[in-house]
Design a protein around this nucleic acid. Structure first.
Lengths: 353, 353
DNA sequence: CAACCGAATTAGATCGATCTAAATTGTCGC
DNA sequence: GCGACAATTTAGATCGATCTAATTCGGTTG
């Protein structure tokens, strides 16, 4: 257990020191810090001068104890390395920071047991609220327990309970945009490539794909799981263009899958955006940077992060607000990886040839 | 200013409640929590049962006030979206988490004034220590001031002062590996592509490139700045293969630059790894995922994060340790983007043709 | 049996702020 | 000149833990 140097605590300047130096009471000094309108301009100036003079540092810890407010919020993310979550985090940070609060960040690594521990830890640290992207297989119970604890909670991206705020994406709409785009280009054999742990967003994307295909009168049955690790996804590319069920286009669960498959098609000598069409999901920065540039459904993670943070701030203000949902509309970003159906190649080749 | 619901504070279970329930004193209950060996097994069991029974939640805030220790560390990162920093963060998180502490994360956006504010805020929050990747143009003074504050500090990746721990990379060695590799492949006209704000790591990379070129008897003068934003880097590719000073290979400041240039060469119809060689720096996940796969100097950001966190934990333990430096050796990861010099193409074309 | 010991327990002060309720000051109307 | 009133200021209790300096107690020991 780390111990702090003795000297640090010895010569710490407290509010009492400031008050004495400015010849006012501790209470008045406290009012000045909190920018209360109750103190006169004159006194305020005197105290502020004293604070500067003595090098006073506000002690949040003490304030928190008395006021039961920590200006701290917890953020639980299942995966730090995925750029999608990073952008989400950047959005959260922007809003929380602007509100003068700070973020305590933890990484659940998508493990429910770890998540449990972490939530307890946040509670012990006295966070004012939590933004949670629930680990896969999180039980509804967890969220309900937190509501019971009266710890303000916002679910983000993934949804476990309806009794609690949520900021996410209209995945169904996104899938419709992707499928409609490919269908409009003439594709009929459209596959879906997915991976990763199962959670509400996963389910909504899959269902969204199915519904969108149905709506266009296409067969939504060609759903293929690819490896979870990015470097191995490429190896799955042949699955889409060989065997009994060939496709001419694939909608990807996210951009990571799309990036991997794009590499995979390159490896087997197929040119994405000509021989085969690919649509990603999320539109992370790589979509624009890779070649061919990736057509992708933008989900604006940063905006979602901002939305989630705002929901939380609202709730801190009014704890009794009814649960709210913030469902962002995604937007298809057409680039080079999707092209008109060519016949001759892919699943329709036999019919067309 | 967010206010918490009244009820929350009303019915909170405190250590006193637990003590009463277990019919022991507050002090004893406190000892149990802190796993002191002073209490008898019997009493310990009694108290632990009471805690469970009453649903007691430890109040770090109160403990921190008295014990002057917060089990919290601050991490200041200049850019959340860069995957390199994310991996770094993951490494830090792993170690800090294992030590039972949590990370307060803030984003300086590479602005010194913001960084200033954030450091003050961390101090007010009573973090036990700070891991700082200094924003560009941070003055040495800042770090020295923090040492004076007796706030344990570890610099990471970028170095501003020698009076303070530092965890980073041997950039000079990395550049030597990159240059030697290309030189061994027969390249003589090797350019350097850089971008971004100027800081110690920037300088060390540039100097490293120059020295490495000198050591091989090559002219290190072809250093070109490319745009900062990833989507625009591609446009800079022609600069390397046209004009008076053509090159056959380029060493990149980091993988973001490499990724951008790789796209740029694709756009002008050149095949990286055949017509032109490219070596990245950092070896982020994309290096393996892109096509052609990127030869890159791995700097192991996650390991550096772990190293930095360990340095900090050590220092918390022994504040009077002399400043230490942890300089990781990078490692060249050869993939597809670098190939033998072809003559006929690139800078040497005229000589060879 | 008194003195002493170590192990276990505890009362009470304390950390540094905020909150409550009351005191102080100055101003105004009559 | 006095009470009413608003504007400031303040003393003292308080948040929930930890720390210090005892105290208790069963068991040895001389």
């Amino acid at each position: 257990m780390p111990i702090l140097s003795e000297s640090r605590k010895k010569n710490r300047v407290t509010l009492l020191d400031v008050a004495r130096y400015a010849s006012v009471s501790r209470a008045t000094a406290s009012l000045v810090i909190r920018k209360s309108p109750l103190v006169s301009t004159e006194t305020r100036a005197k105290v502020e001068a004293a604070m500067k003079e003595l090098g006073y540092v506000y002690n949040m810890g003490a304030a928190r104890l008395r006021a039961d407010r920590s200006l701290t919020i917890g953020v639980v993310i299942p995966n730090l390395v995925n750029p999608f979550f990073t952008e989400l985090l950047a959005g959260i940070d922007r809003i929380i920071d602007a509100a003068g609060m700070v973020v305590i960040l933890v990484n659940s690594r998508d493990l429910v047991t770890r998540q449990e521990t972490l939530l307890t830890r946040m509670r012990e640290h006295g966070v004012d609220g939590i933004i949670l992207c629930p680990a896969a297989e999180t039980e509804m119970l967890l969220v309900e327990r937190m509501v019971e604890w009266e710890l303000p909670l916002v679910q983000v991206l993934r949804r476990v309970s309806d009794d609690c705020d949520y900021a996410g994406v209209d995945y169904a709409l996104g899938m419709r945009q992707a499928v409609d785009h490919l269908a409009d280009l003439g594709h009929r054999d459209i596959a879906f490539a997915l991976h990763g742990p199962v959670h509400s967003a996963y389910q909504e994307r899959v269902d969204g794909f199915r519904d969108a295909m149905d709506a266009r009168g296409l067969d939504p049955g060609n759903i293929i799981r690819v490896p979870n690790h990015i470097a191995e996804i490429a190896e799955a590319a042949p699955l889409f263009v060989s065997g009994s069920r060939r496709s001419s286009a694939v909608v990807c669960f996210n951009d990571v899958v799309a990036l991997g498959l794009s590499a995979g098609f390159y490896d087997i000598g197929m040119t994405v955006g000509r021989d085969f069409s690919l649509v990603g999901f999320d539109d992370v920065a790589d979509a624009e940077a890779m070649r061919p540039r990736l057509t992708s459904v933008a989900t604006f993670p940063e905006a979602i992060g901002e939305g989630a943070a705002k929901l939380l701030l609202d709730r801190l203000d009014k704890p009794d607000l009814a649960p709210r949902k913030l469902v962002n509309a995604p937007q298809l970003h057409i680039r080079q990886s999707s092209a008109f159906w060519q016949g001759g190649v892919g699943g329709r080749a036999q019919n067309a040839g």
